[in-house]
Write a protein that binds this DNA or RNA. Structure first.
Lengths: 183, 183
DNA sequence: ACCTGAACACCGTTCAAGT
DNA sequence: ACCTGAACACCGTTCAAGT
C-alpha cells in the first residue's frame, strides 16, 4: 500500500508543526501555549492542527517523543562514562524540559494517553538505569531500589533547582552511597 | 482597630469557601475545578469569590495552607515514632494531595506567589526532617544530602504510585542506607 | 462592605463548507 | 485529502451597578 508521496508530505507537515510546538512548549510552557499560537507560528488555521493531531495532549506526546529520542541518541555516546558524570549530564539535558516534566506529572490523572506515555517512559528509564548500575557493581538485591532512588532524586533536583556546585556535591554523595566502596 | 464583628463574618465566609474549594481541588484537581463550580457549591455568584481571594492561585495557596497545617498538627503526635513509620505515615497523609503537589510543581514557573509558597514549604519540611534525621543519629556532614534525598523520594513515590508492599520495602531500604548501622 | 448580572478576552475543539 | 471560517461551550476575571 505505498502511498509514498502523500505520506511523505504528511509527515513533513507533521514535523513542521512539531518543531514549532516544541519550541513554544519548552519556552512558554504547555498551558501558556495556545493551539492558536502554534497554528499562527506554523502558518495555518487553528483547526488545521486537528487534522494532524487528535488534540493538544497528542501534540504534547509527540513533542516529548522527539525530545526523548534526541536525548537517547546523545546518551549512547556516554554509556561508558562514570556514573557521576552520566547523572550530571542527564540533569543538564533535562533542565530545559523541566517545565514539561512537571506538566506530564500534573496531567497523568486527567489524560490517559499521557499517563500511558509516562509509565512507559519510566519503564525505559528504569531499565537502562538498572543495567547501568549493575555494570557499576551495585548488588543485585539493591538494584531496584537504587535505580528508583536515582530517578526520584533526578526528578527532585529538576523540580527544586540548586546551584551547580550543590548539584555536583549532591550527585557525588548519592553515587557514593549507592556504588559499592572501591578497594 | 477592633472591627471584630465584621472580621469574624469575613473569615467565616472565607472558611466556607475554602472548605468547598479544598474538597473540589482534591477530588477533581485544580485545573478541572472551575471558579464557577466553587461559587455554585458555596452558593454565591462566581465573581463574589474575587472579593475574598484575589485570584484562583490565591485560593489554591489558602487551601494548601489548610492541608499543611492540619497535617502538621497530626504529625506532632508522631515525632517520637521510628523513622520508617514516620515516612510511611507521611506517604499516606499526602496521598490525597498528590494531584495538588503536581499542580504546585507545574505552576511555580507561572505563578510567583505559588513559587514563593513552594520554596517556603520546602524550607519548613527540610528543617523538620533535618532535626529528625539528626535525632536518629545521621552524621552531621550527611544531614543535608540525606534530608534532600528523603524528600525527593517521598515526592517521587507520590508521583509514581506502587503497591503498599513495595512502598514498605522501599522505605525500609532507604532508611537502612541513611541511618547509621545499629550495633 | 458585600454581592451580583453582564460582559470581556480568551481557550480547546467541532462542524459544515470549500478545494 | 487537506484546509478554513464560523461557531460552540467553556474559562478566569473585570466592571458598573445595586444594597
Amino acid at each position: 500500500m505505498a502511498r509514498t508521496k502523500t505520506d511523505l508530505d504528511r509527515s513533513a507537515k507533521e514535523q513542521e508543526i512539531l518543531v514549532v510546538a516544541q519550541k513554544l512548549f519548552v519556552s512558554l510552557g504547555y498551558d501558556a501555549t495556545s493551539m492558536s499560537r502554534i497554528a499562527e507560528d506554523t502558518g495555518v488555521a487553528p483547526n488545521t492542527l486537528y487534522w494532524y493531531f487528535t488534540d493538544k495532549d497528542a501534540l504534547l506526546i509527540a513533542v516529548l517523543d522527539r525530545l526523548v529520542s534526541a536525548a537517547f541518541r546523545e546518551y549512547e555516546r556516554r554509556r561508558k562514562a562514570p556514573l557521576e558524570r552520566q547523572l550530571l549530564w542527564i540533569l543538564g539535558e533535562l533542565k530545559d524540559a523541566e517545565g514539561l516534566i512537571a506538566t506530564v506529572h500534573s496531567r497523568t490523572s486527567v489524560a490517559p494517553s499521557l499517563d500511558a506515555w509516562h509509565t512507559n517512559f519510566h519503564r525505559m528509564l528504569e531499565l537502562t538505569l538498572l543495567t547501568q548500575l549493575r555494570a557499576h557493581g551495585v548488588a543485585e538485591e539493591e538494584l531496584g531500589h537504587a535505580a528508583k532512588t536515582t530517578i526520584f532524586v533526578i526528578e527532585g533536583m529538576l523540580a527544586h533547582p540548586s546551584s551547580a556546585a550543590e548539584q555536583r556535591a549532591f550527585v557525588r554523595w548519592l553515587v557514593s552511597t549507592i556504588e559499592p566502596k572501591r578497594t
